[in-house]
Amino acid sequence: MNHLTDEQFEDILHGNTNVPEHVERCARCRARLDEKRAVARRVHQAFSSIQAPPGLADRIRAGIAASAKADATPERARIIPLYLHRHLWSGLGAVAAVLVLAVSIGLFVGTGSQANAAQVALTEIHHLNLDALGQLVNEQDPNALCAYMEGQVGHCPAMPHAGSGMNTCGCCVRQFQGQQVASYVVQAKDAPVSVIVVPESPEDLGLTPRAKTAAMRDIWQGKHACCNIACVRRGEYSYCAVGQVTQKELATVLNALPE
């Protein structure tokens, strides 16, 4: 007596074939078929409650409109012609960031913790960066990159200096607490780390000074979900390194910024 093969079970589940008589006689095949049907049903049921978030269609339409507008703006192409299309993706990412930020802030304002909301937003930006790594502006020429950032956020953020062993994977503009901020991703030893440059002080971000950089700047630290956060204040901006790495590794990233 030959038991049913996996392929035959799949054909039965898909309704491609009737249940063979063998199954009626064979307790083992009957049990396996019941089990496969039960798993298929449960998987279907598990996803049936998932729906697109309210407003996603509107946000996508806004993203499409923004893309069309960006397409029709030749000035942007003159800044960094090679990466024009990536500006569009940055725009879309910003739309998504606004949503995530809004949700995050909504959640945390409810608990009365604006500082925590800032750390949630930093972490969300890091996740957005990871998901869009292939779409980040990846200009090799530092001057062009600087010009791009100045055009987008009004300043040129410090980046790890050559020879630090930190490769920059790309940069982008994100929404943070209602404003556009610069962000870039560097490949640290164990995983990518996002550096997000925000005007808020580390204290306002709810972080605590716990270490010092090689140049004796305070490193303000925090943690949200699976990500560590470490910030240094440089002039008018806080440079916040965020990633699923140790605080020590985040400090290495911050130490790689030129003084």
């Binding site: 996603l56 996508i60 499409i64 998504a96 995530v100 990871l130 998901d131």
Partner: peptide, 12 residues
């Protein structure tokens, strides 16, 4: 959040 990005990218 990654899912939403992926949907947007797909639609575009």
């Amino acid at each position: 959040d990654g899912a939403e990005d992926l949907v947007q990218t797909t639609v575009l």
